[in-house]
């Protein structure tokens, strides 16, 4: 188990979520769930982040923002799509301005189902993502630093 697994820092982005999932993400930081146990920190800054946690679906306005934030996260990085909207667009899928889940813009490594998600599911999703992050780091290290 390397340090990548022990210190996953999160960037949380609300693409066009109804705030339901977002409130659950913040709930995970509270004493009851305390994700800092796993070394997880909600950084709010792509330059510091390892895990990109996105809620909500993608629309025309936030496409570019999503792409930008993803690009600004240094390798190795993983993306977690939180909630049904982030997975597929959810109930908003057929809206004229919604292009679907975030996988239409950036590669997703873990999906957390739910509307809204439960903190336990969220934590499990992030832990799954940490496993992917670990593999990516091994690949990245072998590929040599860019």
């Amino acid at each position: 188990m390397s340090s990548a697994e022990k210190s996953p820092w999160i960037l949380h982005y609300n693409a066009s979520s109804c705030n339901g999932c977002d409130i659950e993400i913040l709930a995970a930081l509270t004493p009851l769930y305390d994700v800092e146990r796993f070394g997880i920190i909600n950084t709010g800054n792509p330059a510091h982040a390892d895990i990109f946690v996105v809620t909500g679906s993608v629309n025309e306005q936030n496409k570019e923002v999503l792409k930008n934030l993803y690009d600004q996260i240094p390798e190795p990085k993983v993306v977690v799509a939180v909630g049904i909207c982030a997975a597929s667009g959810g109930v908003f899928r057929d809206c004229y301005n919604v292009s679907g889940g975030i996988a239409t813009i950036i590669p997703v490594d873990a999906y957390v189902p739910g509307c809204s998600v439960r903190p336990e599911a969220l934590i499990e999703g992030v832990v799954k993502a940490i496993g992917v992050l670990e593999k990516k780091r091994a690949l990245f290290d072998n590929g040599g630093a860019k």
């Binding site: 390397s2 340090s3 022990k6 004493p31 800092e36 240094p74 990245f140 630093a145």
Partner: peptide
């Protein structure tokens, strides 16, 4: 963390953080 009635990270957490940061992409 304890003052906020949480468990908090391991005591060695700052070292894990540094090690992780050191192995990130140079950007």
């Amino acid at each position: 963390a304890r003052m906020q009635s949480r468990r908090g990270p391991p005591i060695l957490q700052p070292f894990y953080d540094i090690d992780k940061l050191w192995h990130k992409e140079r950007a």
